[in-house]
Design a protein around this nucleic acid. Structure first.
Lengths: 226, 226, 226, 226
DNA sequence: AATGAATGAGACTTCATTCAT
DNA sequence: AATGAATGAAGTCTCATTCAT
């Protein structure tokens, strides 16, 4: 039950917001380094240098904590990737920026990315079924499908089932993240981004005929990759 | 500890082997239906209609049981997919059969496939690090890379980094499995197989020049981004 | 520990007295609605719209708070029932008024009555022994016994052991309260009062012989039973 | 969830039945001596000289344990009181035997009686409402009401509301138990039984006129009360 | 006079593991 | 070869209490 005394309303003091952020940050770190199953409240509290009770004070139990970490991280990755995608006009450019941005997120926010993967894989319903299963990919998948349908309408992409293509993109990015987690710096993320962009460009581009909108060159100057 | 009397050597009676197989089978079923974290020895024993002690008798603890389930399942999937691949000659055909076989395995051995995913995601070292992380993909990845290198040598495939392409294939297949787990029959595996084959065929095939056995395949010009 | 600065002496400012009364009132409400075990300081503070610290400021811990709630409520029920009893002369009338008043208290002060029951049942010494056990009934029991002895001396009542009769009256009233708590409005308290009066009148009245003080008619007109 | 491995089926081994009985016995003792709120599993296990886990092994959690203690004790008191009641024919005799039996149970099974009272008072729903509130008295109350209605039909009892009379009887007995708990041997249970029988006999007996079935004298010889 | 923040003990539960039979 | 019984550690959660501000 949402017991009393916890500052879960809208009004948040400065110190409270700081603690909350600190706990979330530590949870991400522990998720990344210990894995979902070993991310106990005790470990998290120890890392934060606080007592376990504080976590219960700020969050409605472990489930709530994990859910908020998930939401916060999803918001972060969305905020970092989507705006860049929105600046592009052509579907192929959108996808390129999406892939590049996703891989860049893995590089700049390794712990966040790993924690996200842990949550996706580890969070379960009481009966053991995945709680953030493929369903939690939905928003991202639908976003990708939207881009693909646009590309197909514009004649930029060949015909294919958008859902499968979107799955392939997500799976590829996640698999690269896994490699990064396993092998660390030995995995060249720049190269991975470059290759994945080329891979899916080749996989989707329509080479069967003349570009329908050939008269319409890229409406904006080619943006350098970095 | 590996106490004396346990039949863990090579010599195994028939009944022993049967028990062992039964336990492994039940573990797979429980992993698939309850998830890694909820797959307790009690649940497995109950499903097998035996007492928990028997599991300890045949396996050196839970970790050992899971490891053997993993090995057994990997062996199974390998046995079902690789021979078919070996009957093909051209790299593109090998890849097609590999993808089709992998997706078919998901369909015919749903529990095995799900259990495998659960183990990959859930099994950890005592410190919390993934025990069957990306490293356990290695054999499969290297197998795929070998096919790709062959295709590139034959001029069938364009130049690309085999490792990344292999990762993308594995990721795509795993993601389709996740969808299947999440959405069940609503996911059309035949369609998925067809689409993935087309996807990676388009992604890899060399369309720049004359066909496969031409005299001079593109050595490695243009590792350009597009 | 009773730290300095807390207004626990006699001298109390108006605002202090108001806070104290407010906390006690809220404690009664929470006891009645949540039960003893679930009446946490957090819940009480929340209901009062104050912080938990205030309660510690005005009371020496939870035990002290409950004790004061008990004392206050006992005082209230005494103040409401005893004066009416005192206006009667004959023992049978006193008992009638006592029962009617007790049941009326249950009706007009439902939360107080329920809270009292919760305290009687729930409050324990640190070792787990009832802290407000039967002993806390003592004043009320002795009061009833006094009335009975008077009635026996006057020849109004037959001979019986006053203590047991007093226990029966208290038990009957408490049991009616329990029914009220459990079944709410479906329990007709007017009827219960009427029946209990008749029950104990029949149980105690001496019908063996002529009224000793038959010459002394009821000194006041029979008060309507409702 | 009813986890696996617990012997909760019908088949019970001897040793298992013994453990189960031992745990229930210890729970009754701890309930009686420590009160409901302080009857933790740790205390119960300590008293039984076993580890906490054993309790979980034999019972589905604390709630289940308490429920079984309740059921077992109710069964015991029923088994001890009801047969004796059934041997009587006249309602007044049935009630006499019921009261005598109930008080005798308090004397011979003090811990059981106290534990029962603790459960009635202490067991709550998650929201804090009584779980074995007055409702759990229902069977007993209805049994008493049945006797009373028979007595009224036979003309043995005067008219009154059976439910209130039944409540009064239960309340009186419980209150005597409370006194016993509080004052121990100083409370004379024989006297209490004698007095309560006389009390309720006087309260219920119809003295208004001739016995309706006066022609039918007591069908069996008066059984000496002691 | 009051508050928000933090603590730490204690409760219940789950589960891998051990052991006598 | 197998079982039932038992253990003990670890996890999550609640809550009275303390304390600096």
């Amino acid at each position: 039950m949402a017991s009393a005394g916890k500052p879960r309303g809208e009004r948040r003091t400065f110190i409270e917001e700081a603690r909350r952020a600190q706990i979330i940050e530590c949870t991400i770190a522990v998720l990344a380094s210990h894995g979902y199953a070993h991310a106990s409240l005790a470990t998290i509290a120890e890392r934060a240098g606080i007592s376990k009770g504080v976590i219960s004070y700020y969050f409605d139990g472990k489930e709530d904590l994990i859910a908020q970490v998930h939401a916060e991280t999803m918001m972060l990755v969305t905020k970092l990737v989507l705006p860049a995608v929105a600046t592009e006009v052509r579907a192929s450019d959108k996808l390129r920026v999406y892939i590049e941005g996703s891989i860049a997120f893995v590089e700049t926010h390794a712990a966040h990315a790993t924690a996200l993967l842990e949550i996706w894989n580890g969070l379960r319903t009481p009966e053991g079924r995945p709680a953030f299963d493929a369903r939690s990919h939905e928003p991202g998948l639908e976003f990708l499908e939207g881009i693909m349908r646009q590309g197909q309408k514009d004649g930029e992409f060949r015909p294919f089932v958008p859902r499968i293509m979107a799955l392939a993109i997500r799976g590829a990015i996640d698999c690269v993240l896994l490699q990064r987690v396993a092998y660390g710096d030995k995995v060249d993320l720049r190269e991975a981004a470059r290759e994945l962009v080329a891979l899916f460009d080749a996989a989707m581009r329509d080479v069967s005929g003349p570009r329908p909108t050939s008269a319409a060159p890229p409406p904006k100057a080619r943006r350098g990759r970095r």
